[in-house]
Design a protein around this nucleic acid. Structure first.
Lengths: 131, 131
DNA sequence: TATCGTTATGTATATTAATTCCTATCGGGA
DNA sequence: TCCCGATAGGAATTAATATACATAACGATA
């Protein structure tokens, strides 16, 4: 994220993360979890999604379990067996959540463009750093 | 962050974090590091700042060292000795960076208000969740 | 019904991060 | 000159995470 010209300082740029939280500091779905759901939606498989994210299957599986415990409704539908060995798909709700999250991110991206530009304008003008 | 009415689903809300990054995945200053600088600015002491953040002095000190290694200019000025034992203040640049970060956060907060509202409007309308 | 690849889990190992513990240095003020 | 409390930083311990490994259940299909 973060564009060129004025929205960075040398090679430094702003990055961000958004997640779902409950109460104080109790994460319901981390950005990583949401990313995982997104990959599962695309791949239809936990194994492949984990591979694509560079995490172990065990971790992905644990993440899903945690998510299922915390969110109030089912997000994935897991199937074992079959020719392909099995598959995992998102429920309608899961799919809608991920879509909403995707759009959320693109909305933030847009907003961040301007905000980051303002931020780096300041940074670039910081005392003695006109170089 | 995230207001009431329409910008949350039951007790679930959106939270976010912004940090400075270089290249891909190489964090220059984490949100935690920026928070630490902020506290140091207010407290004038690493010890107190760490205490307020609920982290060990050792960790805070390590964070600062890391920051100093990665950012291209000094952000803090540390003094040992003296009646009070010592103190740590932000340099002009450090102070400006923290101010810029503070304003960045409040800008994002404002932007997030609307974006989160849109997000939760969708979530609340998700199939079968009108309950 | 034998196969194959995925989901499902426990356990053990490895890796990484953070806390705890020490010991030293510093320097203004009593 | 000595003291106090903060900075400085190495080293060991503990905690938290992740990976590796191993084994089982599954079930559509050839």
């Amino acid at each position: 994220m973060a564009g060129p010209e004025g929205s960075r300082y040398y090679d430094i740029f702003l990055n961000y993360s958004v997640w779902l939280e409950a109460r104080r500091e109790s994460i319901v779905i981390s950005a990583e979890g949401l990313k995982l759901l997104d990959e599962i939606r695309q791949e239809g498989s936990i194994v492949t999604a984990a591979r694509k994210m560079g995490i172990s299957y065990r971790k992905a599986w644990g993440l899903l379990k945690e998510v299922e415990n915390l969110i109030g409704f089912p997000l994935v539908e897991k199937h074992r067996g079959g020719a392909a060995g099995g598959k995992t798909t998102l429920t309608t709700e899961g799919s809608e959540l991920v879509s909403a999250y995707d759009e959320l991110n693109s909305d933030i991206d847009v907003a961040m463009k301007g905000i980051a530009k303002k931020f780096f304008r300041k940074i670039n003008r910081m005392s003695g750093h006109e170089k």
